[in-house]
């Protein structure tokens, strides 16, 4: 039965006013996102100097510069790669917020992808832009709240959270997250997942040191998966997939 009141985002016909509203919304999102990012940058870079003034010292700029040249360049490359890869997934609002609030791989990206799937929207659409922003903003607020409560209750909570009994649980938050996500995504895309999983396993088995650079290995793994998805998509004739 065809139902004109189908509330699914994907089935809702897009009208011109919708498009205009979205364009206006998006334009302002970039403005607000940039303002928020610049203010956050100033606050984060300024804080060490303010703390220094309070403690009666100033940061050792020479050590900071040499430290940045030694270790910062690696993180610079990593941050740029993350920005290139994740911005298309998150859209404008979600992107600005996610890069301000951090914890991308272990929280924000899976969170936004999960919300997108539950609601049923496609990447690159106005609906995805809204849902992604809602998801990242909610996730950030919850994290801020949990950490604030946790810090307030740090003394009574510390023995519980650091008890040896619970250590294996908190050491395995990320495997628990990716285990759940793996089932959800692999069951319908086993043909896309099998080869990158095999290649990654072989690489990590043969070069055990790579386990310290897992976040970098996402790029080749993702590239293989995208190439396989592209072949599958092309074979199925574009939209028919």
């Amino acid at each position: 039965m065809t139902d004109n009141t189908d509330l699914s985002f994907e089935n809702r016909p897009e009208t011109e006013p919708d498009r205009e509203l979205f364009e206006a919304y998006n334009e302002r999102t970039h403005l607000f996102g940039r303002i928020a990012s610049v203010i956050t940058l100033v606050l984060l870079l300024g804080a060490p100097f303010v703390i220094g003034a309070y403690l009666g010292v100033s940061p050792d700029l020479r050590a900071a510069a040499s430290g940045f040249l030694a270790i910062g360049v690696i993180w610079l490359v990593s941050c740029v790669a993350e920005w290139l890869v994740y911005t298309p997934m998150l859209g404008a609002g979600g992107g600005y917020l996610a890069f301000i609030t951090g914890n991308l791989i272990n929280m924000k990206i899976p969170c936004a992808v999960n919300a997108r799937d539950i609601v049923g929207v496609k990447a690159g659409t106005p609906e995805n832009e809204i849902v992604s922003t809602l998801s990242i903003a909610t996730s950030s607020l919850v994290t801020i709240l949990v950490l604030a409560v946790g810090v307030a209750l740090l003394l009574p909570l510390q023995p519980l959270l650091q008890s040896p009994v619970l250590t294996p649980a908190f050491d395995n938050v990320v495997p628990a997250l990716f285990g759940a996500m793996a089932y959800k995504y692999f069951r319908k895309n086993l043909d896309i997942a099998a080869i990158p999983l095999l290649v990654m396993t072989l690489l990590f088995v043969l070069v055990p040191k790579l386990t310290g650079s897992t976040s970098f290995m996402i790029l080749p793994s993702g590239a293989i998966a995208i190439a396989l998805a592209w072949l599958k998509h092309k074979k199925a004739g574009g939209e028919k997939l």
Binding site: V174, Y185, A193, T201, F204, L210, T211, S221, A229, H233
Partner: peptide, 29 residues
């Protein structure tokens, strides 16, 4: 190819999961 953007994002995410699962398997082996 039309409609590929969404699938590319899903594939990228699958790649992300594969990298982590591969690291656990590699770590064990």
């Amino acid at each position: 190819v039309p409609g590929f953007g969404d699938k590319a994002m899903t594939a990228m995410f699958i790649g992300l999961i594969c990298a982590y699962l591969g690291s656990y398997l590699g770590g064990f082996i």
